[in-house]
């Protein structure tokens, strides 16, 4: 018995070492960033006696005092809101239409939505320069120019999320029931279909927002003053502030995305886990 537990412990040695080493690799840069953002001790002078000295919030203060911080953040938030609105307005009707009217085309539409993977942001930026600089200068130089391209860039994530939301509900029955009670299409959408896929709409909006708030490539090449472009320039003239801003961004995105993962976990999975726990089954008995 004891030799068996010993052997099973031994067999976990490798995997546990892998996990610990990885945790270390993924946490270390966050620790070093926090220190550099909030402690004003130059690296050569840092040792055990100075490790608690000169911790300060000055770096963070510099971020909020910079005249370009709020304008760039506001600009990016505006772009994000517009991108979310167009994404939902375009994809929700399309996805519903495909499910209800032409289910045969589902594979094709899914394939089209992953096409943006093939044109990476830098190539898309080249394409915008190649086509729109010559043929539609007004769009190229408009402050909203980035929005349609951000919709395209987020498409693989957003469509999958909306599609999953539709698959999770019996949309045909919902629509038939609502229609046979006399509701028009508008009411059916507003009161029967959309409320039932609310969590997938929220997660699609979150994903879009993180894409827009993190996108550097196209904005930098097209020279638009978005938040990521500001972060990069800010680091150039205010290194400690730049590091503090990186830390704040990291914390915010982690909270947003972490919250999303919990929120978007399908209800079925949660229910199954609950049932398992109630029945005393542990799903971890694998090998």
């Amino acid at each position: 018995m004891s030799s068996r537990t010993f052997r099973s412990r031994l067999s976990r040695l490798g995997p546990n070492l892998v996990l610990i080493a990885c945790a270390f690799f993924f946490i270390a840069p966050i620790i070093s960033t926090t220190r550099q953002a909030m402690q004003r001790v130059p690296m050569p002078l840092l040792n055990w006696s100075s490790v608690f000295d000169k911790w300060t919030l000055d770096g963070i203060k510099k971020v909020f005092e910079d005249p370009m911080f709020w304008p760039s953040l506001q600009f990016s938030l505006k772009l994000a809101a517009a991108t979310v609105a167009i994404t939902l307005g375009l994809l929700v009707p399309t996805a519903l239409y495909v499910h209800l009217r032409i289910p045969k085309a589902r594979g094709l539409v899914e394939f089209l939505t992953v096409l943006p993977y093939v044109v990476p942001p830098i190539a898309l930026a080249a394409g915008i320069a190649a086509f729109y600089r010559a043929n539609a200068r007004w769009l190229f130089s408009s402050q909203w120019a980035l929005v349609p391209f951000y919709v395209v860039m987020a498409l693989p994530f957003t469509y999958r999320s909306i599609d999953a939301g539709i698959k999770a509900i019996d949309v045909r029955t919902l629509v038939d029931a609502s229609r046979s009670l006399g509701a028009g299409w508008g009411t059916t959408l507003r009161r029967a279909v959309l409320p039932n896929m609310a969590s997938s709409l929220v997660s699609a909006s979150f994903l879009t927002t993180t894409v827009v708030l993190g996108e550097f490539t196209i904005a930098n090449v097209l020279n638009k003053p978005t938040f990521p472009v500001f972060s990069f320039q800010f680091f150039g003239y205010e290194p400690q502030g730049g590091i503090a801003l990186a830390m704040l961004t990291l914390i915010t995105t982690t909270i947003l995305l972490g919250g999303l993962t919990i929120l978007a976990r399908p209800k079925a999975v949660r229910a199954a886990r609950k049932a398992d726990r109630a029945a005393g089954i542990t799903r971890t008995t694998r090998f």
Binding site: A28, P29, T33, P228, S231, I243
Partner: peptide
């Protein structure tokens, strides 16, 4: 990815 990640590793 992106700019933020590069900053994280500069400090490390």
């Amino acid at each position: 990815g992106g700019v933020i990640l590069a900053f994280l590793f500069f400090t490390l």
